[in-house]
Each structure stands twice: as C-alpha cells, then as structure tokens.
C-alpha cells in the first residue's frame, strides 16, 4: 500500500465537553488508486483530510493514529507530524480554490513558488516553462496569459484548474481532494474530475477524494470508504460495495440517491424520494452498540448493546463492513 492510515481518532474540545469527531478510522490507498471517502455532513470526512495535513483547528486533538506515506511512518498525534510532506509528497485541493491561492500574487508566481520548493536551485526560466506546461496539461486556455493573471480574474472552475496544476507540479505521493467540485456547476464538475483523474494517471499518485456525492465516487473512484458519525462503516472496491452493500447505511444511502434516468411516474403519488429517517447521534455521547442503530431498518436487539467488529462481506478479503448481520455468515 502506498498510503495507509491506522486508527485515526480525533476529538474536539469545546468549553465543557468533548466531541469525538473520528473514532478509529483506517484507510488504505494503493499507488495510483482513487479512494472515495463518502459521508454526509457530520460524518467527519473533512476532519480526516485536516488531520492528515496537520490543519486541524486549535481545539482539535488527534488522540491516536499513524499514517504511512511514501514508505515512511508518521505519528499523527504529534503536532505538525506531516509538516515535512506539505508541498512535496502531499497536496490538497479544497472546495474553495481561494484557500490555496494567494490573492495578491499572479498565477505564474504561485506555480513557480511550488517548483522552487520542490527543485531548489533550479533555473527560473525552466520553472516558468514547466508552469506553463502544467497549465496547458490541466487544459486551461491560453496558459501564457494566465501566468500573468491574478486569481480574482479567473472563474471558479479555472481557479480549481490552477490548484490542480499546482498539485501536478508538486508531484505528490498523496493528493487529497476535499469536495473539489461542490461549488462548481455539473458541466465544470465533470471537467475538473477528469483533470484529477488525468493527474493521477500522469504522476501515479494516490488520491483521497472526499465527497458527499455517491455519483462522483461510482463514476471516478476505484475504492470507497463509507463514513458515518465519525466511524468507518464499510470499505471495498466501488463495484463490490455497489453490488453488495455490506452495511445497511450504505444500502440506504445508495437508495436515497436520485438517479438522473429515473422516470417520472404518471401517478403523482408514486414520485417519492427516499429518506433515511432519524437524526445523527449525539456527538458528545456515543450511544452504546452500533452507531447507526436507531436509523437502521434491519436492526435487532443486539445492535443496541454490541459494537460490531468489522466482518468480511462475501468472499472478498478487501470488502468489509461493521454490521452484526454479517457476523453469522
């Protein structure tokens, strides 16, 4: 495995109480693989990215967790554990590209800065040429002119392309994309996702795609991990999970997705949308038993008391889910 994260737990300390944002999350991403980390709001999916990048808020604390990136091991409980990897080895694409871009410098300056850090002592002219090439690779029109432009002169989609070009130049081992297309229109979303895939193809990095959209995951990812209320409930290849969801939550989440090709019924009462009833559990006091108990449609008595281990789903070794229904099989 190119990247692995083991037993990542993160707490948020609020004035009197502690919220457990993540509990024992583990992830594996192979070289050149795209892992889709799926979760709804409150699942803690962005916290995973921030913990890896060392960008957690001051009141957050990593209570356990190690990461193996590029053959080296990092103790995530130490502050700034992964700082040496920032800008080289690890790159991040945020939902808002302006978080990665400095408004007062031109696109060219910022791209060359990435190169100056990765290849210190290099020739400036060569850097400019490489930066222009990177902009061309992410299909930004007229790269020469873009080099001299400021971020505010570009549209949202173009900015996101510049951020991808920066990631491309830093040649990371791991690219973390946190909701990279959520703020964009569908047509631009498809283009940006294709650029992320082609970046992966070009440099063979591992990609962690954090998203709420199952559509994006099934379309672009190799593997999927499903997060709910800070716990990983299921993981496997996209195909495995989609064909045979091991956890009821995964199945229900897929059912909620409105397919674009779903036909409207003539009888209006049949055009219902699927819902997962209930609410997220209290983040301050984890209920005993399964975290999804209470919203689950197939739960039984033991679900309220026993925290399920991870069980293999079917015969595949790399497809597991934390549901007691799988215990017997």
């Amino acid at each position: 495995m190119a990247i692995s994260v083991r037993n990542l737990s993160v707490d948020y300390n609020l004035s009197h109480v502690t919220a457990h944002a993540l509990r024992d999350i583990s992830l594996e991403i192979g070289k050149g693989e795209i892992l889709g980390l799926v979760g709804e709001s409150g699942s803690g999916k962005s916290t995973v990215a921030f913990a890896l990048m060392g960008l957690l808020a001051n009141n957050a604390k990593v209570t356990s967790g190690t990461a193996t990136i590029g053959g080296r091991s990092y103790d995530l409980t130490r502050r700034d554990a992964t700082a040496p990897l920032r800008g080289r080895g690890m790159a991040m694409i945020f939902q808002d590209p302006m978080l990665s871009l400095n408004p007062v410098f031109t696109v060219g300056t910022q791209l060359c800065e990435v190169l100056r850090r990765r290849l210190p002592g290099g020739d400036r002219k060569a850097h400019v040429a490489m930066a222009e090439e990177a902009l061309a690779k992410v299909k930004l029109s007229d790269p020469k002119r873009r080099m001299g432009q400021y971020p505010h002169e570009l549209s949202g989609g173009m900015r996101q392309r510049v951020v991808i070009a920066m990631a491309l130049l830093s040649e990371p081992v791991l690219l973390i994309a946190d909701e990279p297309t959520t703020a964009l229109d569908v047509t631009v979303e498809a283009q940006i996702m294709r650029e992320i895939v082609s970046l992966r193809d070009r440099i063979g990095c591992a990609v962690l795609l954090i998203t709420h959209s199952l559509g994006l995951v099934t379309e672009y990812c190799d593997r999927i991990s499903v997060l709910y209320a800070g716990e990983r409930l299921e993981h496997g290849t996209v195909k495995q999970v989609q064909q045979q969801p091991g956890h009821p939550y995964t199945r229900m989440l897929f059912d909620c997705e409105v397919a674009i090709d779903r036909q409207r019924a003539v009888n209006v009462t049949e055009n219902r949308f699927t819902v997962i009833p209930g609410e997220l559990p209290d983040p301050f006091r984890r209920p005993s038993g399964c975290i999804f108990n209470g919203r689950c449609d197939v739960s039984f008595d033991a679900c309220a008391t026993t925290v399920p281990d991870e069980f293999a789903v079917g015969d595949a070794a790399d497809h597991g889910a934390r549901c007691l229904l799988l215990a017997g099989s």
Partner: peptide, 18 residues
Amino acid sequence: LDVSVQGDLLNLLQDIRQ
C-alpha cells in the same frame, strides 16, 4: 442538504401541492 434528508422536504412539498 444531505441526500438522506433532502427527500423529506421534497416529499413534503409534493404532498402540500397535492
């Protein structure tokens, strides 16, 4: 809205309309 809750609102709007 998350997909798991958006349907709730949409169903409600449909019901009201009918």
